[in-house]
Design a protein around this nucleic acid. Structure first.
Lengths: 211, 211
DNA sequence: GTCTATATACGGATAGAC
DNA sequence: GTCTATCCGTATATAGAC
């Protein structure tokens, strides 16, 4: 059964099952406190259920955490969009850059990033799920775009070089902006638009077609 | 007094005080287990002292952790070297790139990175110390190099653009290599040398002087 | 300063009623 | 499936002897 019961305390526009309430509460607690410092009591309290109910739905703390993180990775990074039908490489790259950076700097994406990195030595499967849902997807996207632009004569990236060129392009976007955001330091003076522009300039200087 | 007592169990080439033994042990425990999951018992056991001794030297777990991390950030990132007297921009940038990447991928640097990011929401001072010891230092270095190369006519980075150009250059170097290393995934097919070469190519395409 | 022993609390997980 | 109540290990931190 997919939705066995409703829980009044968790009802919004779409009523949630108990298991869903627990997942929502667990997500908040884990992302705020980190895995080790999060307690099942805190999750139970925030979900308005008893601890025993949590253990009826999830085997233990670890598997609850894994369910939260892999589910949330998917949702958070599902929205990476593909630019379509651009006639200009600069426009396409800039669009992807700004979109990508916006996703990366969203508070919840940052929180997931922190907790996954922090726990990856103890929970390698969580690290793998994160990597598959985020970086792998992003790299597929940029590779596809670079290949398409090159095929249409708007860009000149050698076939063999596409993966590494795409990798460096995405890496440039993160830069100090991402580091500072992860550390919760006040943002630097450079905006997303500014970073995207300078990164695209550098990329096109190397791989652009002479116009 | 700087070195009040020696501890036989910790003696190596340079004898360590009890406080130093505790710091060494704490570093290992914190970097392996993470802050929350690390226990003062484990630190005491590894340092061959009693828990009470730890509390005689450090106020509590948190301040012990802060002492470990800020001290270790300094040591780990102190070795960022400045290339000197290069007559070729490519050579200077490649040298810095490979050196920088080597430091970043050292297992202990990665472990510090993980635990600092994971705990930064609860311990902002630790995040700040890390940022000052690592990224700030690296950016000062690359900025200085770019300025010098430009002044000597070997590079053409506009003055105002130096900080952001340096930022993007360092960011390129990390790329997927760093992400995978942080997540403890098997390394990708691209070597440090390969990444450095392609990054320098891209940087020079934009900011190199016509030769 | 350093130890042993302990106070005190909390966390993960379960028993058993309903 | 859900609850209340509880077991039991472990964690931070301290007391008090030496």
């Amino acid at each position: 059964m997919a939705r066995p019961k409703k829980n009044v305390a968790c009802m919004g526009d779409a009523p949630l099952t108990k298991a869903e309430c627990i997942l929502v509460a667990a997500r908040q607690v884990f992302l705020e406190a980190g895995y080790a410092a999060a307690s099942m009591d805190a999750v139970a309290a925030r979900a308005n259920v008893s601890k025993a109910t949590i253990y009826a739905h999830f085997e233990n703390k670890r598997s609850l955490f894994e369910a939260v993180i892999s589910g949330r990775c998917e949702e958070t990074f599902a929205n990476i969009g593909v630019p379509e039908d651009y006639t200009d490489a600069r426009q396409a790259l800039t669009h992807l850059a700004e979109h990508f950076l916006g996703l990366l700097l969203a508070p919840e994406a940052l929180a997931i990033h922190r907790v996954v990195l922090g726990e990856s030595p103890r929970l390698p499967e969580v690290g793998e799920a994160f990597y598959a849902a985020g970086p792998v997807r992003a790299h597929r996207l940029i590779d596809h775009l670079l290949m398409d632009l090159t095929r249409r004569g708007l860009l000149a990236v050698p076939d063999q070089e596409i993966p590494i060129a795409g990798d460096l392009f995405l890496a440039m976007l993160k830069c100090d902006l991402h580091t500072r955001a992860l550390l919760l330091l006040p943002p630097s003076k450079y905006s997303i638009q500014m970073i995207a522009k300078v990164a695209v300039d550098m990329f096109l200087a190397r791989y652009g077609v002479k116009g």
